[in-house]
Nucleic acid binder design. Structure first.
Lengths: 195, 195
DNA sequence: TTGTAATACGGACCACCGGTCCGTATTGTT
DNA sequence: AACAATACGGACCGGTGGTCCGTATTACAA
């Protein structure tokens, strides 16, 4: 019973910050980093308000990502195959990785910021663990699969935001090409091991 | 003929900085980051001297890595198989990746700093391109291999310093385990594709 | 050896960023 | 209307990579 009614200015400001940050990350695509002061200014709010609402920079970015990932996560946890449960791992794993890749392609700066935010790579984010555990569970259902834990890490490493950004930006790889290449690579990893 | 004789104090200071930084990164293993001021103090030198000699933080770290990687690079470019040239790609690629992994295991903080230094991931470092090109060339010799460019990126992503650090530090994976798991994963990627 | 131009030195200094403080303003409640 | 409780915001802080510039050192020529 320690529930308190939140003040309406607080909620209003919270969503204003969220909206402003989303815009900044999305189309203020500049190579310059988005600073907390930027977000505060764009939201018409003091800096402290952001930190009060989200804890720290990582918290804000995490919150943004959760919004952006909501539909994808729903599709994975409760949607139809091949993304949703029910599909065989050989179909579902590529589908999940493709969804993750698409997210990073569609939200390059945001994903980049997320993976830089947690102080030691993306591996502190509780978000990462969700993906890893999901992948690992599916990998374990594949006959002949070894080291499912490591393999899950490895597959996720291939979709790291900075790699995606490098390929898309510097090497001019189109989204479609990247999705195909990731799918082929994944297939290579998943296909039965002819030992 | 624009060659100038370098001043001896400059050379002395340069190596002093290199030595101090190496020590700091290696056994001052603290979780705290190594700052430029730290290095300057440890080397008994002003900060500007470091920047004059190495350009910026990334330059210093790059120089350090080159020293630390020298033997490995020699073994790869001119040593005996399976690391050196002459080995079949199926043997050499795992060997090269294992060597890279060992480097990151032996120089965790340094490798971590290197990959954080270049402003957008490790992909700006000219160092990365060397590894990528080498891998890609070998991959292209494997029958049935597709997307050798992407595959090279993918294999390198698995040895990212922060992943290695996370596995070794947080998940308590022993170096031997990691090497085995990477080798198995690589084998999976390399084995003939039963299309 | 001495004079001098070139080069390097170093620590004060700067810009920037994430994050905090605290006096003030807004809200919800009685 | 009175009064807690809560939120506000911008000045402020600590720390970092990087620069400036007056001074000291070096290489070289006379």
């Amino acid at each position: 019973m320690t529930e308190r009614k939140p003040r309406k200015d607080a909620v209003r400001n919270r969503s204003a910050v969220l909206a402003a940050a989303d815009t900044l990350f999305h189309d203020y695509d500049s190579s310059k980093g988005v600073t907390m002061a930027d977000v505060a200014a764009a939201a018409g709010v003091g800096k402290a308000t952001i930190f009060r609402a989200f804890g720290d920079r990582a918290g804000l970015i995490r919150a943004l990502c959760e919004v952006r990932l909501e539909v994808t996560m729903d599709a994975i946890t409760a949607g139809p195959p091949p993304l949703g449960p029910g599909a065989r791992p050989q179909q579902r794993i590529p589908a999940v990785l493709d969804a993750l890749l698409c997210f990073k392609l569609d939200n390059r700066h945001l994903a980049l910021a997320l993976e830089e935010a947690a102080d030691l790579g993306p591996y502190r984010a509780e978000n990462y663990d969700r993906w890893h555990d999901l992948l690992q569970l599916m990998l374990e259902q594949i006959p002949g699969m070894t080291h499912s834990d490591f393999t899950a890490h490895a597959l996720l490493a291939v979709t790291r935001a900075d790699l995606v950004d490098h390929l898309a930006g510097n090497e001019r790889v189109s989204p479609e090409q990247m999705r195909t290449q990731l799918a082929d690579f994944t297939a290579r990893v998943l296909h039965p091991y002819p030992l």
